[in-house]
Amino acid sequence: MSLQQFLDRLEQVQSDATVAFEAASTVDALEEARVAFLGAKSGQFKDAQKLMGTVEKTEKPTAGKRLNEVKNAITSAFETANERLSGGGDEAPDPTFDPTLPGIAPALGHIHPITQTIQHLAEIMGRMGFEVAEGPEVEDPWHNFVALNIPDDHPARDPLDNFYLATAGAGEDVGEGDRLLRSQTSTVQIRVMQERKPPIRIISLGRVYRPDSPDATHFPMFHQMEGLLVDRHVTMANLKTVLRVFANNYLGDEVEIRFRTSFFPFTEPSVEVDFLWNDQWIEFGGAGMVDPNVFRAVGYDPSKVSGFAFGLGVERLCMRRHGITDIRDLYSGDLRFLRQF
């Protein structure tokens, strides 16, 4: 037999074996194919191997090398097929595999509950067309008081009730200062109204500061969300409707809402807003119709536009939602607290 004929025969066996192994769809069929090609007595490869003797002696090294390659290829094709088929469960289960062992948790961080609350509030208000606005936390008295209709002699301006900044350089600070940490986010409303013309529909969110001795429900730094809507015809009925829709959304229930008369310099009429939730009236925040003096301060004509504003403490909503009982935990940076959210 010529070398070429021998090599062709090997090629044929390899190709047939590969096809047969790949085609086998059961372990039995594969075993059948294995016997047919790799059988020790009358397998096709064995048969081909026997033909080696007929090859010219000088050409035997070439033939032998190829024979080896083909044997390896056929064996490997069989193993591949065998692996493919034996994965099916005929093997005994691994006794060391315990699916009840706990999973390996990825190292995940947590988003602060106040951030989660703020995002929730902004999302609900966003669906009612309110966009987020922000402003500086260090303010001048004009934005924090004057424009908000808080006159010079108003107790809200008292140095003991505000964080006025020390003036640069030496000199004693007496009375009120010309910069302070804002005591309310209403300052943002002023800044937005100064820049834009109505209609305006915004919520302002952020940190505010008031000197309060820290305890379970007080902290000198907290967050407020304030809403403002100014347009040509805005009524207190609109205010009540918006707040009711908000409450239904936030509390996830049909809730009753009520207004209680209150007093804020920047709104008239002014009300406290309560929600009836689980048979309990919950204080939500303050609200009212924007005071004409506020409109005048920002150059709006109060006879042409009207508007409502409302404000609420983010911490209180957050604490109620998550069952947090001490406001100080929120600002402790304590991971044992933070990783619960």
């Binding site: 409707t241 009520r258 207004f259 008239e268 009429p269």
Partner: peptide, 27 residues
């Protein structure tokens, strides 16, 4: 506006309806 508040608070804010939606606007 101060007198409006006086009348409103004595008349009762429960008289103000809750079904006055604001116009739809994109945000």
């Amino acid at each position: 506006v101060d007198l409006i508040e006086e009348v409103a608070r004595v008349h009762g804010y429960d008289q103000i309806p809750e079904n006055a939606p604001i116009p739809v606007t994109p945000s």
